[in-house]
């Protein structure tokens, strides 16, 4: 089984970084992983997208996938086109601070006010880590411990001073997921498809 996650947002939101963290976390847990990021030629504001595919066997999916198990959307800029790739019943986690409406109604939507939570935690730049930890808590795709380790591994040496703050952001994301209705969460987890049969 392969489970696909497409990350979408804009340059500056850390889309490539959080996709990298998820991929490394899954690798730490002994999974097979594929990671492919694309972004427009601007550092801030252009569309930024990354695909992570996680499986137990060697990944068969190509880097540009036709269907996806889940989407983590930090911004609406490319959401409509990417949401079309969601299989019915798939998970769409949205940064509800910046995304007012979701384009699909046959998928399981989880709203995480990531930008607002990041602001409350003292730095807007933390929204991606918050959303990632909430996404992983909701879908149980990887464990929180692997996520924290992978975040440390993903930071280049000149960014290591952000590690401690990122640990707090990841914790904030996990805590937010714990405030969601437990029965709705259990329903979501029970009805999630196992992934694509490749």
């Amino acid at each position: 089984m392969e489970r696909e996650v497409i990350f979408t947002g804009i340059g500056g939101q850390g889309i490539q970084l959080i996709a990298n963290v998820l991929a490394r976390a899954a690798a730490k847990e002994g999974k097979e992983v594929m990671l492919f990021g694309v972004y427009e030629g601007m550092m801030r504001g252009g569309s930024s997208e990354s695909t992570v595919v996680i499986g137990d066997d060697v990944i068969q999916a190509p880097p540009i996938i036709p269907f996806t198990w889940s989407v983590l959307a930090m911004h609406s800029v490319a959401l409509e086109a990417i949401a079309r790739k969601l299989r019915p019943g798939g998970v769409l986690v949205v940064n509800s601070t910046l995304i007012a409406s979701v384009p699909r109604h046959d998928v399981q939507v989880v709203e995480v006010p990531a930008t607002k939570l990041a602001e409350q935690a003292g730095n807007l730049m933390g929204a991606g880590m918050i959303a990632l930890a909430a996404f992983c808590a909701v879908t149980q795709l990887v464990g929180h411990g692997a996520l924290v380790q992978a975040m440390h591994d993903s930071l280049p040496s000149h960014r290591k001073h952000h590690a401690e703050r990122n640990v707090a952001f990841l914790e904030a994301g996990r805590s937010f997921a714990q405030t969601l209705d437990p029965s709705a969460l259990a329903h979501l987890q029970n009805t999630l498809t196992p992934g694509s049969p490749h």
Binding site: A23, A27, E32, V33, M34, L35, F36, G37, V58, I59, P62, P63, I64
Partner: peptide, 9 residues
Amino acid sequence: FLLSHTSEM
């Protein structure tokens, strides 16, 4: 381009 930039195990 895809081989160059796709990460895998």
